[in-house]
């Protein structure tokens, strides 16, 4: 077991430093690049916070849907293959719900401000 602070806490501290202490000092293209850098650190923080839980429930859904076991990457490959071959489609019970949940979990990490995501979040 590794010591603390946790990766989330460490990453957040760097992002906060760049945001409050460095960003006000920089202009132009470098300021744009710094914003991208801060966005990356924020994304990493969100992923470190959420990935374990969302992957576990994704694996659980995929096992139920496909009837096989494996890692989250393996099972996604199996699902992709079955959709390609036409063995699974939107008429398959549970597929639409699974894809929606998985996609919402990805947007929560990648782009929580994306307008489509915020609209769909309002439906949950």
């Amino acid at each position: 077991m590794q010591d603390e602070p946790t990766p989330v806490e460490l990453t957040k501290s760097v992002a906060d430093f760049l945001r409050s202490d460095i960003a006000p000092l920089i202009e132009g293209h470098q300021a744009f690049k710094l914003r991208v850098a801060i966005n990356i650190l924020d994304l990493v923080t969100r992923q470190l916070t959420r990935e374990e839980g969302s992957d576990a429930s994704e694996v659980e859904r995929l096992r139920a849907l496909l009837g096989v076991d494996g890692s989250v990457a393996d099972l996604n490959r199996v699902l992709a293959d079955r959709i390609t071959r036409g063995e699974v489609d939107l008429a398959t019970s549970g597929l639409a719900e699974h894809l929606w949940q998985t996609t919402m979990d990805k947007l929560a990490v990648d782009q929580p401000n994306y307008a489509s995501y915020k609209r769909e979040l309002g439906r949950d």
């Binding site: 991208v36 966005n39 990356i40 994304l43 939107l90 639409a96 894809l99 929606w100 996609t103 919402m104 990805k106 947007l107 990648d110 782009q111 994306y114 489509s116 995501y117 769909e120 439906r123």
Partner: peptide, 21 residues
């Protein structure tokens, strides 16, 4: 690198088109 992480935006938009809730 960050544009790679925008693929999921198109996934939610595809679901909104093909499997709307």
């Amino acid at each position: 690198a960050m544009i790679g992480r925008r693929a999921s935006e198109t996934e939610i938009d595809l679901l909104r088109l093909l499997a709307p809730r």
